[in-house]
């Protein structure tokens, strides 16, 4: 059974598009990444899945049941972590957890204690004193405390320091090994590559591609930034390595988008006398710029 299934899901706000024709299937037990630039429609899609907003057309189903627009018992199976977290300022973290606990019939508090310890969260403080990171931890605990079958997270890593972010993804992977479906949106490629089985890419409200992570476009790309001392190479020379351009603000610096294997790339770069070299993986924004901007301009929506 699919944990999440959408068919022709669309949302318009008046004449403004939210998302258009989202067809998505997330199998039970998958870790599914949902990536796209800011404003692409990730949060709108998630809100549609949760019934917080109603679709203009199309349908969303969770565990085979239509998403109820007015809420309902189906939500007992779901844990949700929004990107921006705010809670009642009159409460402490513990009050909030007790409030959340009151909506479920939890057998024991051991799991909540474990989450609290692993995320290094102090629940005794007042909500209004928590930093953004601590609010996020509180949100994660309350979303996982009832051991949901599906966890939906919107930009889960934002606001968390690297150690806690790693711990969070460890927890999510452990839950997944127990059969829990994880669906999360992000614009951090690293999070996708580390954890996801499959990924969907969204841009301008439309799904561009859905597939396994190792088929993610741009995984073979490298971004080279280098400064060449002495005589400067010709454009033709650099074009053998990849798509090269001078960096206008920095004379003698070049930025090259290369698809060469690393060994070949290093060999080719070694022929130059370099004052500076940085080789990095492209960011999600860079992948979208390099791969999808031309496609969209040509009127194509998919590389599939």
């Amino acid at each position: 059974m699919n944990a999440i299934e959408t068919a022709g899901l669309a949302k318009y706000y008046g004449k403004n598009r939210g998302v258009i024709d989202i067809d998505l299937q997330v199998k039970e037990g998958e870790i599914f990444g949902f990536i796209g630039p800011n404003g692409a429609g990730k949060t709108t899609t998630i809100r549609l899945l949760l019934g917080l907003i109603r679709p203009t057309s199309g349908e969303a189903r969770l565990f085979g049941q239509p998403v109820p627009a007015g809420g309902g018992k189906l939500y007992a199976k779901i844990g949700y972590v929004p990107s921006e977290v705010t809670y009642y300022p009159e409460m402490t973290g513990l009050d909030l957890l007790n409030y959340a606990n009151g909506f479920y019939e939890l057998e024991s508090g051991h799991w909540v204690e474990e989450l609290t310890e692993r995320l290094q969260f102090d629940p005794e403080k007042n909500v209004r004193t928590y930093s953004h990171g601590n609010l996020k931890k509180l949100c994660i605990i309350q979303a996982l405390m009832h051991q949901p079958q599906l966890v939906i997270l919107d930009e889960p890593g934002s606001g968390l320091d690297p150690l806690i972010r790693k711990e969070l993804f460890d927890i999510l992977e452990e839950l997944n090994q127990k059969g829990v479906t994880i669906f999360f949106s992000t614009h951090v490629l690293e999070e996708i590559e580390r954890t996801c089985h499959r990924v969907a890419m969204i841009k301008d409200g439309r799904l561009l591609q859905v597939g396994p992570v190792d088929k993610l476009p741009g995984r073979d790309m490298h971004i080279v930034v280098m400064k060449i001392a002495g005589s400067q190479p010709s454009k033709v020379e650099l074009a053998r390595i990849g798509e090269a351009e001078e960096i206008p603000a920095k004379p003698e610096y070049y930025r090259i988008l290369s698809r060469q294997p690393v060994n070949m790339l290093v060999t080719n770069l070694s022929q130059y006398k370099l004052d500076y070299l940085r080789i990095s993986d492209p960011t999600l924004e860079e992948i979208f710029m390099e791969l999808y901007e031309p496609a969209v301009k040509r009127g194509q929506n998919s590389y599939v």
């Binding site: 917080l52 018992k73 779901i78 949700y80 909506f103 479920y104």
Partner: peptide, 8 residues
């Protein structure tokens, strides 16, 4: 997002 995603 806290209250309206509860099983109610």
């Amino acid at each position: 997002e806290f209250l309206y995603t509860r099983p109610l």
